[in-house]
Simulated scan of single mutants.
Amino acid sequence: MTPDLPLPRRDRLTAPKAAAIAGILFSGLFITSLVLFLAALPANTTTSEIVNTHRQTLTVGLNLLPFAGIAFLWFMGVVRDRLGSSEDQFFSTVFLGSGLLFIAMLFTGTAVMGSLLKLYASEPNPQIAASYYAIGRTFAQEIVINYAIRAAGVFMISTATLFLRTGVLPRWLSFLGYGLALVMLFRVGHIDRLGWVVLFLPLWILLISVYVLIDNYRRQVKTVL
């Protein structure tokens, strides 16, 4: 009787494509949500009247963020599967921890803003509603801008380092990730002016995903030929 042999990991063959699809989904949903959100709450707006004016836009943006977070988690899982036994344990730990912290703080900020919309709608007193708006917006921005962006920067540095060490992607993509991450980590200024910096993460992941899809397609064509 022959011993049972481990089945080949056929799923690893589809890992690059799965990671690319997850990355594109995350980038598309996250960029759309952030653009809607930041456009509805410009930096020079200090009154709570903006909540009523752009309530529908804010609601759409907030509802897209949970699905973007799910796609991001899928992207992380597929990337780790792709690296396999060649991944560095130290940077893999930082990669996983910073990614989970980013999603946790992003979801927290989203929940705060969603609660703000509901409280503002149910409060008949305009002065109390204005205080809800001021406290909720400041709290959500502090979480996302001051902490989630920096966690995203650490995630980009660890991810770029893993790609650089394993050689699964061109070096220029890793160096680009380092540069964008440094801006996210060390650019200090007024909290509202930094809102658009968070888009560096999805744009970088989108670039990686498109490259992976193109490279995977080229490899398939060469195999057929």
Rank of each mutant, 00 (worst) to 15 (best):
M1R: 08
M1I: 06
D11N: 08
L13E: 07
A15G: 08
P16K: 03
K17S: 13
A18H: 05
A20W: 00
I21K: 02
A22H: 02
I24Q: 00
F26P: 00
G28A: 06
L29F: 04
I31N: 01
L34K: 09
L34V: 14
F37E: 05
L38K: 03
L38C: 07
P42K: 05
A43M: 09
N44F: 07
N44R: 09
T45I: 06
T47Y: 05
S48Q: 06
N52W: 03
N52L: 04
H54F: 15
L58S: 00
L65G: 00
L65C: 03
L65R: 01
P66C: 02
A68F: 05
A68C: 09
A71W: 00
L73F: 07
W74V: 03
W74A: 03
F75C: 02
D81W: 04
L83G: 04
S86R: 10
E87N: 07
D88H: 06
S92Q: 10
G99R: 05
L100R: 06
L100F: 13
L100G: 05
L101I: 10
M105G: 12
L106A: 07
F107D: 05
T108L: 14
T110Q: 13
A111V: 02
V112E: 09
V112W: 03
M113G: 02
M113W: 11
G114E: 04
L116Y: 04
L117C: 00
L119W: 04
A121F: 00
A121Y: 00
A121M: 01
S122M: 11
P124T: 10
P124V: 08
Q127Y: 09
S131E: 06
Y133T: 02
Y133W: 09
G136D: 04
G136A: 03
R137G: 02
T138K: 13
F139W: 10
A140Y: 04
A140I: 05
I145N: 04
Y147W: 10
R150I: 15
G153M: 08
S158V: 10
T159E: 09
L162T: 14
L162E: 15
G167D: 15
V168D: 14
P170G: 14
P170W: 11
W172C: 06
F175S: 15
L180Y: 07
M184W: 03
F186E: 15
G195E: 08
L201T: 14
L203V: 15
L206M: 14
L206C: 05
L206E: 07
I208T: 12
Y211W: 15
I214W: 09
I214C: 06
D215Y: 12
Y217E: 13
R219N: 13
